[in-house]
């Protein structure tokens, strides 16, 4: 039996792209939420946290409507940028970024909030700007939170199903991720292939988590110096 690796490759690409984008937009968002005195901060927090409780199909349904060329936004994307996201790889990336946003933002925000205020204040009194303080003092001290955010986003994207099906469909080589491929094989009563796919995904996910938890312990050790 020959295994078609295409769905796994696609899943990895999707998870990598999503995690990279989340890293870039998630950290500033987390910093904003951690330090802002904005009175209605609960509102952005609730919006970012929505994917945690919302069924992926609900999110997928709204994204489907939003990205469709028939909608105002979809039409605008199409006419101004010649971009159609529905049933494409980059459409999946956009959906995944929204779907996994809380998994990056929440650990980083919690990490930043757990740092003592005196650390920031000490840096300010030493003449360092907010930006210098953030880069040189705060971020290096929340390495475990950053790693947690990266890994959770990555793993969560790999495990995506409902959202991918809604906005990506099931196009082999374009939008068919590993989790969809399993579903597809089971639907065609192709249990042997489904078994192999499922086992690979299981082992892969376990290996990632194992790696992270071992690294995290070491990192924490290096920060506390023990």
């Amino acid at each position: 039996m020959s295994i078609d690796w295409q769905p796994f490759l696609l899943t990895l690409q999707l998870a990598l792209a999503t995690t990279l984008i989340l890293f870039v937009i998630g950290i500033p968002l987390a910093a904003f939420l951690a330090f802002t005195r904005f009175r209605f901060k609960a509102i952005p927090e609730a919006i970012i946290g929505l994917p945690l409780v919302l069924p992926p199909s609900v999110l997928g349904f709204y994204l489907l409507l939003l990205l469709s060329p028939a909608s105002v936004f979809g039409h605008w994307l199409d006419t101004w940028f010649n971009v159609r996201l529905l049933f494409t790889f980059w459409g999946l990336v956009a959906g995944s970024v929204i779907y996994s946003l809380p998994f990056m933002v929440q650990p980083v925000q919690a990490g930043l909030q757990s740092l003592p205020l005196s650390l920031r204040h000490a840096s300010y009194t030493l003449g360092k700007s907010r930006w210098q303080t953030f880069i040189h003092v705060l971020l290096p001290n929340i390495k475990p939170s950053l790693i947690t955010g990266i890994v959770l986003s990555f793993a969560h994207t790999i495990g995506e199903f409902g959202l991918v099906l809604m906005i990506g469909g099931n196009l082999p080589g374009k939008t068919q991720t590993a989790s969809i491929a399993i579903y597809d094989e089971v639907e065609s009563l192709n249990y042997a292939t489904a078994h192999v796919y499922a086992a690979i995904l299981l082992l892969f996910s376990f290996a990632i988590l194992l790696l992270v938890y071992s690294i995290r312990k070491k990192l924490q050790g290096s920060i506390t110096g023990l």
Binding site: A122, Y124, I223
Partner: peptide
């Protein structure tokens, strides 16, 4: 003036050394 522009040294009760 923000703290950065004041010529000060501040020592905190809990030291506030940068742990990393």
């Amino acid at each position: 003036l923000p703290p950065q522009q004041r010529s000060i040294g501040f020592v905190f009760q809990e030291y506030a050394l940068f742990p990393h």
